[in-house]
């Protein structure tokens, strides 16, 4: 577990602010995973993994299929609860939480197989992302005066902003069920983004896309990080894309962490190369 130790050391030194080559500011540790172990019956999906996420960075989790990447994301977003280990969020240990509670703490996510509200329009889908920013009670809503109305207008403005940002204005009123796959992915990103999350979790944002769509999506991810300073944690199994996008990379294989560091460090890591290219066993 030398990688884990490296991660911890980095965390201790990581409270100071660093500036990247392209001028983005990366702050202190915002979330830390400590010795996470997740089992499904006899199957160990995640085995004693630790790493940290710093404010404002793009952190990638990569690995071959079945490495446990999505499980890790589900642990962060509260869909799975690890048997061992703890999640430290903004300096304090996070108790076991339901997914909706995690979302209310400012952690938004997208899904590998897209989970949108298919029967609702793009705009309505994006508006659901603002639910946690609406304070009006059911009584305010019933009267629909003052607070409720102000909030709706304010949230609608924010939703339109994000829709513009992600260039999906022309499909605002289209039911999501009618959209092609690539656009659905973008709508899902919009819904997560509009919540103004502290941490944005993207589960294979580029899976199943063609080259052009992948380039678009990469650009949006970079823009989001640059423009709003959003901390992004993303999962990919396509190495190439990740290396260009991310500041730091965690590499997983068979539920274990086999590498952690900058794209360059990871690329030179022998274990990582073996996992991806396969090792010759004599």
């Amino acid at each position: 577990m030398s990688g884990a130790q490296g991660g911890m050391a980095m965390h201790d030194a990581g409270q100071d602010v660093t500036v990247t080559a392209d001028g983005r500011t990366i702050g202190g540790v915002v979330m830390e995973m400590r010795n996470i172990t997740l089992r499904f019956g006899g199957v160990v999906a995640i085995k004693d993994i630790s790493f940290d996420i710093r404010e404002g960075e793009i952190r990638a989790i990569i690995g071959p299929n079945g490495a446990g990447k999505s499980s890790m994301l589900n642990v962060i977003s509260g869909f799975y609860h690890p048997q061992e280990g703890e999640v430290i969020y903004r300096g304090s240990k996070r108790p076991p939480m339901k997914p909706f509670q995690v979302a209310r703490q400012g952690i938004a996510r997208t899904f590998q197989n897209i989970a949108l509200f298919e029967g609702m329009t793009v705009l309505d889908n994006v508006m659901t992302g603002r639910l946690n920013h609406m304070k009006a009670t059911i009584l305010d809503q019933a009267i629909w005066w003052g607070k409720a109305q102000r909030e709706e207008v304010e949230n609608r403005r924010k939703a339109e902003e994000v829709i513009d940002f992600l260039e999906i204005q022309n499909i605002r009123k289209t039911p999501v069920g009618r959209l092609p796959y690539g656009l659905k992915k973008r709508v899902e990103l919009a819904r997560a983004l509009v919540a103004e999350p502290k941490i944005l979790l993207l589960d294979e944002p580029m899976a199943g896309m063609n080259v052009e769509e992948k380039e678009d999506m990469s650009r949006f991810i970079l823009d989001v990080n640059d423009e709003f300073g959003t901390t992004i944690v993303l999962i990919e199994h396509d190495m190439g894309v990740v290396m260009d996008l991310s500041d730091r990379v965690v590499v997983m294989d068979y539920g274990k962490k086999i590498g952690d560091g900058t794209p360059d460090e990871v690329r030179r890591n022998q274990e990582v190369i073996d996992a991806y290219l396969g090792v010759a066993h004599d």
Binding site: P99, R109, F111, D124, N132, R191
Partner: peptide, 17 residues
């Protein structure tokens, strides 16, 4: 809106809080 969202997809509804 939350009501319609829940009707449509539980997972997605949970993920937006």
């Amino acid at each position: 809106r939350a009501m319609r969202a829940v009707a449509d997809d539980h997972q997605a509804a949970l993920s937006v809080g």
